[in-house]
Design a binder for these strands. Sequence first.
DNA 1: AATTCGGCATGAACACCGTTCATTTTCTTG
DNA 2: CAAGAAAATGAACGGTGTTCATGCCGAATT
Lengths: 215, 215
Amino acid sequence: MPNWETPLNEKNADAGADRRSQLRDRLIDIAQETVAAQGLAGLKARDLAAAAGCALGAIYTAFHDLDELILRVNARTLARLEAALDAAFVDAEAEQALEAMARAYLSFARKEEPSWRALFEHRLPPGAPVPAWYADARNRLFGRLDAPLAQLLPGRDATARAALARTLFSAVHGVVALGLEEKIAETPPKLLDEQLGVLIRLLAAGLMMESARLI
Amino acid sequence: MPNWETPLNEKNADAGADRRSQLRDRLIDIAQETVAAQGLAGLKARDLAAAAGCALGAIYTAFHDLDELILRVNARTLARLEAALDAAFVDAEAEQALEAMARAYLSFARKEEPSWRALFEHRLPPGAPVPAWYADARNRLFGRLDAPLAQLLPGRDATARAALARTLFSAVHGVVALGLEEKIAETPPKLLDEQLGVLIRLLAAGLMMESARLI
DNA sequence: AATTCGGCATGAACACCGTTCATTTTCTTG
DNA sequence: CAAGAAAATGAACGGTGTTCATGCCGAATT
């Protein structure tokens, strides 16, 4: 039954681990597509096994939990989000770079809304610690804001910049998250674009003032 | 069996509707306590029925869904949040009023974290429209910011102020939400307090500039 | 006052979920 | 080639929200 693409010339030592890692990747691929199309709630163990052509129990030989699988899917979403932010990064004025990244964040959230929502909807069971590799991926996001902030506030040290980056990112996220919530007759796209512009303008003005104060 | 506090002198016409509304209130009370203690995930139909001393099916004579019950619980949380914001409202300088309300929001989220989280964690099934009474309660929240904004930006009309209020609220919400997420070794309370202060200072500075530009 | 009747509370049953584990199958190894 | 180890399998388990045939109770009628 598990006749999928038998690796003919693979009689090497640990073929089992290889097949397992193949299964892992395949499951992550399918789960990613499912989440992208139907959101976190659409991810069911039985459907996943059927789509992967493996047994239900096989999922649990590749992952300890569905939670672990979801974290892997979310890690890929984070990577795509990072790439989108990097692509939007313009090396020009700091304020323009910040605005470009904010708009890229909104654009990504719109284009991949179910996957993006999954980043924040998913909660692991109480008491379970967030894996370090996932927390790292999350924190890497904020780092994207560091360069523009360093340009705007040369006097600040790295830790202060990191905190500020987190704050600005959170503020933008809040506007995007509440703006995209219940899009039925709530915050039409154009208005949300404007709101984001207003936020950036206000924050940038505040940053300018801050920078002037410190010089 | 349903011997709970039989209303002796109530031989009025429609005693059935009265009993049903009593049950409704009781279920909301208990659900509210459960959500406050254990979060949305801790709300189970069977436990709820047991705690209310009614049959499992009785829940569905009082509410169509558990979703409907959750919306009622969330509406009460929104009311408490409104009260907390009103209590923090100081009639002094607009900037101080905005900061006081932002801090009140953070304080409420900390003090009633599971209930507050439930406001944003809960999603009703796709296609189900948000009841008008709930959307109203949500939008009333933003209205709390209108008075300070009117003071800061006298030139703006009401709809522009409403949009701005929503934006500012969303930004504060974002900082609070991401700040309280995974509090394990992440954003210690003092740092979060500072972050919120920074956000308010930046936004207020931007608003001052905006106001100066329009005069 | 006895009897019928309508409507509502009841909780066993249903459909579905994530997860487990005895069993079977497969592969490696002596 | 046989014997053993390792891994995949899917029926079964415990849990979820929701339903619905049943029986009960109270009100209306004769």
